[in-house]
Amino acid sequence: MKVKIIGCICFVVIAFAISCQSDERIEFNRYYSNGSTVYQAKCQNCHGIKGDGLQSFIPPLTDSLYLKNNKKTLACLLKNGLKGKVIINNKAFDGEMLPSGLTPLEIAQVLTYVTNSFGNKAATSTVETVNADLAKCN
């Protein structure tokens, strides 16, 4: 009897966990696949199909540590562009990225895509977190 009850509880807990995860997963997948489309249209020409950049001219998007350390300002970089020196993968880049002209939702989608492609792994960037980050842009 006891075993049955414990079994039932376990089943409920596991089922709950799976369904929760799959909701998150669905959200992630939606952001990620839309982000892939945004990336192809707006980023890929310069940053490349594999996110490997272009020599010392355009920085790659493979520096997971940079992405992690600048998590809160990535949305601002996409909104306002970036000018001046940045160190990516221990290499200095000194160029200019123009403002992307993307909406907050598109920024969230493409950030989800980039921070989970090219060897990067991070949480979903939702439109809520992006809007909060954008409110704090310099």
Partner: peptide
């Protein structure tokens, strides 16, 4: 050029 030139020169390398 932000559009096709990086692609062209990536392919030219």
């Amino acid at each position: 050029c932000p559009t096709i030139c990086p692609v062209m020169h990536r392919n030219m390398l």
